[in-house]
């Protein structure tokens, strides 16, 4: 998914930048319909996408692997757990957004410089909060996230037990 990270008025993260709408006035249907259609087609051909990304090429390590396969693997594993902040439902390893490319480059550069994945993740959490990671640590806020499935399984087991008993008797 390629999205820009410009904040448009009425900014809606995750949505693509709208293309320019051709200006078409409301006209009475009838004899003018043909010229109207031509106008629409011409306008559609002339319309260009709104400028949304920079003109610079992707960052050094955005789409380039590290030479050391072990380090590349470490970097990839970390990238899969980091949220793209522009297209919020994707990990940076999956996203085509420019900012995700810059984040991948940052991860690879710092892994190559000898930092551990935990150090890099902690520094991103310091900037953006735990929202940036798809592997949230266990704390008071995330406790329901981790415990609720266990509780639901418990309730299910209890219900199943009741049902089986009734059948046997």
């Amino acid at each position: 998914m390629s999205v820009s990270y410009i904040r448009h008025p009425g900014f809606n993260p995750g949505s693509k930048v709208p293309h320019e709408q051709p200006a078409v006035g409301v006209r009475p249907v009838g004899s003018r319909i043909k010229s109207g259609m031509t106008a629409v087609i011409v306008a559609l051909l002339l319309a260009t996408p709104a400028l949304a990304d920079s003109n610079l090429p992707p960052a050094r390590y955005a789409n380039t692997q590290l030479r050391d396969p072990a380090k590349e693997q470490q970097a990839r594993a970390l990238m899969a757990t980091l949220r793209c902040l522009v297209c919020q439902g994707q990990a940076i390893s999956d996203s085509d957004a420019e900012m995700a490319g810059d984040m991948r480059s940052l991860v690879r550069t710092r892994i190559a410089a000898g930092e551990s994945p935990k150090q890099i993740r902690d520094s991103l959490i310091a900037s953006y909060g735990e929202y940036v990671t798809y592997d949230p640590p266990f704390n008071a806020l995330t406790a329901p996230l981790w415990l609720l499935p266990l509780i639901l399984i418990g309730i299910g087991a209890w219900l199943a037990r009741g049902l089986f008993r009734r059948q046997r008797s």
Binding site: I6, A59, R60, L85, E98, M99, D102, L124, S127, Y128
Partner: peptide, 16 residues
Amino acid sequence: DRESSVQLALGSSGVP
């Protein structure tokens, strides 16, 4: 900020 490094350190997620 060619590769958005300061932006990422600031916790900023877009422009402006």
